[in-house]
Design a binder for these strands. Structure first.
Lengths: 200, 200
DNA sequence: CACGCTATTGTGGAAACCCGCAATAGCGGC
DNA sequence: GCCGCTATTGCGGGTTTCCACAATAGCGTG
């Protein structure tokens, strides 16, 4: 199960052509005849990639894209346009679009693009899952434990942490042990790498 | 000294207009009438930003850009084009161009763009300098010290490092101390962050 | 108020870490 | 052969970490 490609275009011909093309290469697709329809259907758990027409009745492609960003949807978006419009393309790409191609499109090109987009999404998902896992474990920490952890990853000694927090050395040791246990790591170095990765 | 904006365009009018505009805002500029001339002049220590025309006699803008990438030049490039060409714009941006704008350009827009490009370059430079600094210090490590460091950042105990390398515990301790000293950090956690950052 | 949960602290000891002092050994260069 | 650099190891001792056992205190629930 690698996810579905959602095709948003108000022209039936384009949607059907794309669906047929991608389906013939073994990809799962689903069409939407307007940005509003797609946005209303969110959240979509199977969404691995979006092919989005720029010029549509109702919301335009870029407008849909903006709303996706605001909604926190992190899926590769391939824009499709029938009109040479460099500023729109530039703005879309700088805003994080996966690609921007002109109609008529080359069949193999768009299939390749969809495949690489799905691959990129899979990587994103894996990274997001890892981050989420870390965030989940972090959420099980008490306030004090978080404070101690924050100082641990700076390389501070237990004694320095104790002074900084105004608590006894022994207490820091207890918290430290609990932090390591809850975060599922063996030592402060693994913890540091776990937290540092999350920042990126 | 914030660096010079290099303007590469085979049309004197454009070069002069841009130079005048940017100079009037207090920016330092230098013009080149062909990609070849600019590439021949490399390396240029003052280069903070490049404004590059797409269509020129001789090497095209994208061709110049490719050679810059190959040469390892990491400077923001703002493409300038007189012809609406979406595929070229898309390719340039995906290859890492800073921006891609159409002529005739808006004066304030291009000044702002140049300023943000220079700011981005300054940040890149700072990050690159930091990475270089780490790399330099790393280069002063002996082979053994590098091996020990590699195991240190995994969170391994000295005893485990000793077993892995087939040397005595005391020897590991000596190497460990030297690694920390040469890398300019106080403990293994700071070292880990230093190395992990470098990877990104 | 008793009970459960968490935070806090102490004691004491095993294990690990850090480091100065000292010594042996190999290797390349003058 | 002497010198400089690196690798290696041992000894001794101070510092830090980790943890089991034990105890006190506050807070919310029933």
């Amino acid at each position: 199960m690698i996810g579905t490609i959602h095709i948003i275009d108000d022209e039936d011909v384009i949607r059907d052509a794309l669906s047929f093309l991608l389906a013939s290469r073994g990809l799962s697709t689903r069409g939407w005849d307007s940005g509003e329809a797609f946005l209303d259907a969110l959240p979509l758990s199977d969404c691995a990639c979006i092919i989005l027409d720029v010029r549509m009745g109702g919301l335009s492609g870029p407008e849909v894209f903006d709303r996706l960003q605001l909604a926190g949807v992190r899926v590769p978006v391939i824009f499709l346009t029938g009109h040479a419009d460099v500023p729109v393309a530039v703005r879309a790409l700088k805003a994080g679009a996966f690609d921007f191609i002109e109609k008529p499109f080359n069949d193999n090109q768009i299939v390749d693009l969809a495949l690489t987009a799905i691959a990129a999404h899979a990587q994103d998902q894996a990274a997001a899952a890892a981050r989420q896992s870390v965030a989940d474990r972090k959420a099980t920490l008490s306030q004090r434990e978080k404070e101690v952890m924050a100082l641990m990853v700076t390389g501070a000694l237990n004694k320095q942490i104790a002074d900084a927090l105004g608590i006894a050395l022994r207490t820091v040791e207890v918290h430290r042990g609990r932090v390591l246990a809850k975060m599922g790591v063996r030592n402060a170095i693994e913890l540091t790498k776990l937290i540092a990765d999350g920042q990126n």
